[in-house]
Design a protein around this nucleic acid. Sequence first.
DNA 1: ATAGATGCAAACTCTTTGCAGGTCG
DNA 2: CGACCTGCAAAGAGTTTGCATCTAT
Lengths: 157, 157
Amino acid sequence: MIPNKTIDALRDRGLRLTRPRRIILDVVRATDAHPTAAFVYRRVRRRLPRVSLATVYRNLQMLAAEGFLAERADAAGMRFDGNTGPHDHFTCLTCGRIYDVPAGAAGAARRRLPARTGFEVLDHRTEYYGRCGACRPPGGRSFPTRQRRSNGKPQGL
Amino acid sequence: MIPNKTIDALRDRGLRLTRPRRIILDVVRATDAHPTAAFVYRRVRRRLPRVSLATVYRNLQMLAAEGFLAERADAAGMRFDGNTGPHDHFTCLTCGRIYDVPAGAAGAARRRLPARTGFEVLDHRTEYYGRCGACRPPGGRSFPTRQRRSNGKPQGL
DNA sequence: ATAGATGCAAACTCTTTGCAGGTCG
DNA sequence: CGACCTGCAAAGAGTTTGCATCTAT
């Protein structure tokens, strides 16, 4: 089910809540498996057999650009995440599954994670996103946009 | 120039130090731009015009699998990093450049980075890698196997 | 009514692979 | 000399796009 505030947020931007779009959003939000486009496509097709893969791609991309979903890249392609709140990820190098972990200090979590969740952490990486000196407005402070991961294409994860 | 210890490490694994291989390694290690395969190909071709893109891909993949290079995925494809030591990255959302930043506590760095480097950090993510409870040997310790590229097919996603 | 969205198929980009011939040790 | 490696071309995989048609609002 799509909450009213999501529906309103879409409409406020001139976006329609079509049947494919609603189901795509539903499917991504209903799983914590960080699905690929192909996975979403298979799931959506169970409810809407005539949907096209292109529609799934277009909607995932748009919903991520508008901040309704988070997206991340890995070696196999893009993955989407219905959980847009702050949280980190644990990727199992053996089975490839991606788990959510609560956002926390990297150093401490490295030791704490195993005890609490059964994860054995072998490595971790932190990626920062923002603006480099060359791209910041020269004069003064930049305005604190609470920017959704939307505008530019150079979005890393 | 390739240090002797790298040459020996290669040979110890039965790998040859061919001309294309040496130049590819050289090129990646000579830049901090986190190059794509295409970038490496262009650079290598300046020194070895008949090199093929396939050779560049095969070598980058192999050198990463053997631990001579680090690799990371982003929306545009794979990127390689000659710096295999522990460090984090800052990606500029405006120009797309990826900068190295010293490994450090995520929380503190978020405030400290701007002052020291001119980076304005808008967001950050930490990824943990390891083994989940389901994949750990039930009885005891596991030993870290070096990860090959996209070996574990992620559970039908 | 009409701007926006969809389905289909073709096109694109990045990456991998098969194979015959070349090369390092 | 033999195993490993390379160049070339073709194939794969994931993602995007052009276009006629359809549909929320």
